[in-house]
Design a protein around this nucleic acid. Structure first.
Lengths: 395, 395
DNA sequence: ATACTTTGTTAATCCGATAAACTAAGTTAG
DNA sequence: CTAACTTAGTTTATCGGATTAACAAAGTAT
């Protein structure tokens, strides 16, 4: 039902050109015609529109390839701001970027939002606080806000918050209310799904992949054809609640043997405390002990490896992705874990999917929110974050 | 890259009209304009083309709705033949239908194709044998063959046979060779994926669903947006090789604890033989014993229920489909098993996906092959099989 | 018989993509 | 240094496809 008249056709080709430019800028009009297989005339027309709407600009001329020099086109990033808010169970973080994904200021922390009665007010206050922080760090006026993305630690489908294990936001009309109050496009989504968008935009993976996020629970974002697949009820990728041990440890979800009872940070730390006899032990001490070749720590990690191996195997069998991205503090600190998880893949049905570490690490959720905003703003699927500006150059 | 010029637009709208007509025939031109949201003129133009190419015909006039009576349009089924061949490990079956999916003759049996050296010749012989059988049962000449689909019990991606556990067809250029020899469109695909297409065309499920097939192994076809998702290497849906028991029974695939070691027909019959002490016991005797309330049989079935419950749970968490179709001889004979598998769903993350039995049963693979041919022939995604002609009216 | 409805076609128009010709601005070879 | 060639981008003419509006065809209702 989507593309059936000429206006849709034009819209489609505009998206195509914008996406190509965002991915491979700078490009000339002729480059764009070659890449998109559109005629030069069509490209020139659409480019005129994009120039006029100040989405792109001409940045000068490139090197001649034996004739007239090409006029190079590039995105105009500082004409708008994208904002992402991560409603984590224990704190709220926020980040604002230009339209190329480069941060304007550092990441900000705020109190956790847990009370459903005041949740919408709180998020509104955080949004306004973020704007003030931006104003303080910039003397010039801010360009328009092109969108706000809010990461929910729970299940989301469209504007509906369906289930939130860590707080009680289910059923709250967060997105519609904020849209009205802030007069800004608002997108909400599951945290693991945002992470997957972040990995897509950072270049860790593309096309068809799964991004696994390990923290207190285990979630995943499934990307098919450069688009999120959230399933019928927004539960696609709830891989923490796949059963790995029949009749195993009971899980708050109601089932027994869910894999997140064996391989989540919480499960691993619990096990590490048992093994080490230190009730105050945490993920950091486990990592340090492992680096010091502590055999008890290695034992705990072998459990992590084993169950992550099962998860990766099962993911490969179910969805057979092009690659699997892992975002976890354990694999970030101990890169060899990735190889050990790979070594668990013994199924001879084809090669195992390439396993790659996240390029974004902890702030992946926020960058994923930014990606959510930008892909809607530009009406594209893939985009490419500009190199991250080092912290010292920020305000 | 697909739809960017006007020709693509026309092609898209032609497909849209054909798909709508196949699903809801008979329809008038005005009905089609309303359903597709295209203008009456565009519909009339495209319909003229479809009439001229004898894909559809006018079957008369419908009831007046207060004005001129509509001219009803319908598919013209007997202008072409679709053929499907199922290369099962123990036998080969074949089926031919008209373009509405109604069988021309009964299903035919042939010897199993196991020798890679002669496999292509054998399949060619079976195809020609099927044509002869059709000629024998019809005095009139056959219309053209619009395509041949071949179900492979193994992994397929495009024309490439990647892995076949039961015979050695991997790497064989079956499709390209037959295309050349028979001068007919040839499609090959995984058996479970074909089954999913069959369920789609039979109306058992639509849009986004998973069709699980249980026999000697366990496979699944994943349908997203009415299209098959076969994954990077054609392994998507190889759910039999997801691990359900860490360190469990070893599987020929190289892993341990694969779910098909616990819930496939082979696994269940093995267990039934152990429990009953009868080395000749089979699935039929298990079903009969269960119907006679034999407690040992019920025990064996409870294992089936338990592991199928895990599989359904994990599928729901990974892909969150609109529904899950189960095609197995056990659930077909003992429908209450479906309810018992449903009862295993204890995860409170949203409602469990509706679990429905296959409408096609055993010949689902063949009908799925037919669907494969027809959807390519008409360039549509969804289609709807005409009611099956009862066996006694066939030749 | 007259007025109204619905179906489907004809005619006029609009919109978007393309090809061909052309202008602009360079490089290269002699 | 100029003539010939190349590449970039625009102008012009044309084509293909979708839509609107008007109309013809064929019915119903009173």
């Amino acid at each position: 039902m989507s593309k059936q008249n000429q206006r849709d056709l034009r819209e489609h080709n505009r998206s195509l050109i914008m996406e190509t430019l965002l991915l491979k800028q700078p490009l000339s009009r002729t480059d764009l015609a070659r890449e998109t297989r559109l005629s030069k005339v069509t490209v020139s027309e659409i480019v005129s529109g994009l120039l006029e709407s100040r989405n792109i600009h001409e940045i000068g001329t490139g090197h001649s390839r034996g004739g007239r020099r090409p006029v190079l086109l590039a995105q105009l990033p500082q004409v708008g701001v994208a904002i992402a808010i991560n409603l984590a169970p224990d704190e709220t973080t926020s980040l604002s970027t230009w339209l190329d994904g480069s941060p304007i200021d550092r990441e900000h922390q705020w109190p956790a939002v847990v009370d459903p009665a005041s949740a919408i007010d709180q998020v509104e206050a955080i949004y306004r606080g973020e704007l003030e922080a931006l104003a303080r760090c910039r003397d010039a006026a801010l360009p328009p806000i092109v969108g706000l993305a809010i990461a929910i630690h729970g299940n989301v489908r469209g504007d509906d918050i369906l289930f939130t294990p860590y707080y009680s936001l289910a059923g709250l009309p967060l997105a519609p209310q904020l849209r009205q109050r802030l007069a800004v496009p608002v997108w909400i989504g599951n945290e693991a799904n945002f992470t997957a968008l972040g990995e897509l935009a950072s270049g860790a993976a593309r096309d068809n992949f799964v991004a696994i996020s390990v923290h207190s629970g285990i979630g995943a974002g499934i990307v098919r054809d450069n688009d999120l697949d959230v399933g019928r009820q927004g539960f696609a990728g709830e891989v923490g609640h796949t059963i790995a041990v029949p009749g195993g440890l009971s899980c708050p979800c109601g089932n027994a043997g869910c894999i997140e009872q064996y391989a989540s940070e919480r499960a691993i730390v619990t096990r590490w405390r048992e093994v080490s006899g230190d009730a105050g032990a945490d993920l950091g001490s486990l990592i340090r002990a492992s680096q010091a070749n502590d055999s008890r720590a290695r034992g705990v990690l072998s459990q992590f490896i084993r169950y992550m191996g099962i998860l990766v195997n099962n993911l490969s069998r179910f969805v057979d992705p092009d690659s699997i991205v892992i975002n976890s503090r354990l694999t970030a600190a101990l890169p060899q874990l990735i190889e050990e998880i790979k070594a668990e893949q013994r199924c001879r049905l084809g090669e195992a999917a390439p396993l790659v570490p996240s390029l974004l690490g902890d702030p992946a959720i926020l960058y994923g929110g930014i990606a959510m905003v930008l892909r809607r703003h530009y009406d594209v699927r893939r985009l490419h974050f500009a190199a991250f500006r080092p912290p010292d150059t920020r305000c």
